[in-house]
C-alpha cells in the first residue's frame, strides 16, 4: 500500500466518522423541532437532550479534522476546492455557526426556547445539503474555467442537474434514517417506551427512500461519469453486501434488537461509503486532480501519519470514556433532565 492510499483511507475514515455522528446530531435536531410542531415533543425531549448535551461539540471537531487532514495530505485540494467552493462552504459555515451557538444558547442559557429549537432543526437539514455540494463537485462536470484562466463553479449546471439533486436528497433521507435508528436504540436503553415507538416508526419511514435514492444515483452515474460508473460496477459485490446489511438491520428492528439494528445500519453505510470511495479511485476531483498529483511531500506525510497514530492513542480512550459515561450508561440515560 502506498502512503497516498493510506492517507486517503485515513481521511475517508474521518469523513465517515463525521457522516455518522453528524447525521445522528442533525437528525436529532430535526426530530426535536418536528415533534415540537406536532405536539409530541414531551415524548422525545428527554432522550434527545440526554444524548446531545455532552457530545454536540465533539461532532464539529470531526469535520475540522477531515478538512485539516485533507489540506495536510493533499495541499492542492486547498487550491481547487477552496477557489470553487467559496459560496457553498461559506453557507455551510454560517449554518453550522448558527446551529452550534443556538444549541448552546438554548441548552445552557434559556432552557426550552422554542425559536432556538426550531433553528436547530432547520439548520440541521440544510447543512447536509450544502456540505454535499463539495462531494457533488468532486464528481466533475461542474467546474468551468474563466477567460482569465481561473476556476469557477458552474451554478447553472449545478442547480439544473438531476444527479446533483439526487445526491442532496440521499444525504437528507440518510441523515434521518441513521439518526432515527440510533435514537431508537438510545431510547430502548433508556427504557423510554414512548420515544422508542416514535423512533422505531421514523426508522421504518426513512429506510426505504434511502435505499431507493442510493440505487437511483448508481444508475444516474452511468450518464454523468462513465469512469466512475465502471468503477462502481467492478465493486458491485460490496454494494450488494451493503444492501444485505440494510435488510439485516430492518430484521433486527422488527425483532426489537435495536443495538444490533443500529450496528448494521452503520455497517451498511460503511460498505457503501467505502465502495463509493474506492470506485472513484484515483480521483479527488474528476478529472483535474488525482491522489498522486496532489500528494504532499514525503516528510510531511510520514510526520502526519505518526501524529495521527499518537493522537488516536489519546482519542480512542477518551471517546471510550464518553461512550461509557453517556451512551452505554443506563443510569445516566434514564435519569430525566
Amino acid at each position: 500500500m502506498t502512503i497516498e492510499i493510506l492517507g486517503i483511507s485515513v481521511l475517508w475514515l474521518f469523513l465517515f466518522g463525521y457522516v455518522i455522528v453528524a447525521s445522528i446530531d442533525f437528525g436529532a435536531g430535526f426530530f426535536n423541532a418536528q415533534t415540537l410542531l406536532t405536539g409530541k415533543h414531551h415524548i422525545v425531549n428527554t432522550v434527545i437532550q440526554r444524548y446531545l448535551s455532552p457530545v454536540w461539540e465533539i461532532t464539529n471537531v470531526f469535520l475540522v479534522f477531515f478538512f485539516i487532514g485533507m489540506v495536510g495530505f493533499f495541499p492542492k485540494t486547498a487550491y481547487y476546492f477552496g477557489t470553487v467552493l467559496l459560496i457553498p462552504i461559506s453557507i455551510s459555515i454560517i449554518l453550522l455557526a448558527l446551529r452550534g451557538s443556538y444549541y448552546a444558547f438554548g441548552t445552557y442559557g434559556t432552557k426550552g426556547h422554542k425559536g432556538y429549537t426550531l433553528m436547530y432543526g432547520v439548520t440541521g437539514v440544510l447543512i447536509p445539503a450544502s456540505l454535499t455540494t463539495a462531494l457533488i463537485v468532486s464528481q466533475g462536470g461542474f467546474i468551468k474555467e474563466t477567460a482569465a484562466g481561473t476556476l469557477e463553479l458552474d451554478y447553472v449546471a449545478l442547480f439544473t442537474s438531476p444527479f446533483a439533486w439526487s445526491i442532496i436528497v440521499l444525504s437528507l433521507v440518510s441523515v434521518l434514517f441513521i439518526s432515527a435508528s440510533f435514537l431508537a436504540y438510545y431510547s430502548s436503553v433508556a427504557e423510554d417506551k414512548g420515544a422508542l415507538k416514535l423512533f422505531r416508526k421514523y426508522t421504518w419511514i426513512w429506510s426505504f427512500p434511502t435505499l431507493i435514492t442510493a440505487l437511483g444515483i448508481i444508475i444516474e452515474m452511468k450518464w454523468h461519469n462513465q469512469d466512475h460508473f465502471q468503477g462502481m460496477l467492478n465493486l458491485w459485490w460490496v454494494f450488494a453486501l451493503s444492501a444485505i446489511a440494510f435488510a439485516v438491520s430492518l430484521w433486527f428492528l422488527k425483532k426489537a434488537r435495536y443495538g444490533w439494528s443500529f450496528i448494521f445500519v452503520v455497517l451498511q453505510f460503511a460498505l457503501a461509503f467505502y465502495a463509493y470511495g474506492v470506485s472513484r479511485y484515483p480521483y479527488l476531483l474528476y478529472p483535474n486532480l488525482t491522489i498522486y498529483d496532489s500528494f504532499t511531500n514525503e516528510t510531511m506525510a510520514i510526520s502526519l501519519v505518526v501524529v495521527f497514530i499518537l493522537g488516536l492513542m489519546l482519542l480512542i480512550p477518551s471517546l471510550y470514556l464518553v461512550f461509557k459515561l453517556f451512551i452505554m450508561n443506563k443510569p445516566y440515560i434514564k435519569k430525566g433532565v
Binding site: I58, V61, V64, S303, L304, F308
Partner: peptide
C-alpha cells in the same frame, strides 16, 4: 500541516 493537525487533536 503538522501543527494544524495537532491543533485539531488538542482541541478534540
Amino acid at each position: 500541516a503538522l501543527p494544524l493537525f495537532m491543533e485539531t487533536f488538542a482541541f478534540f
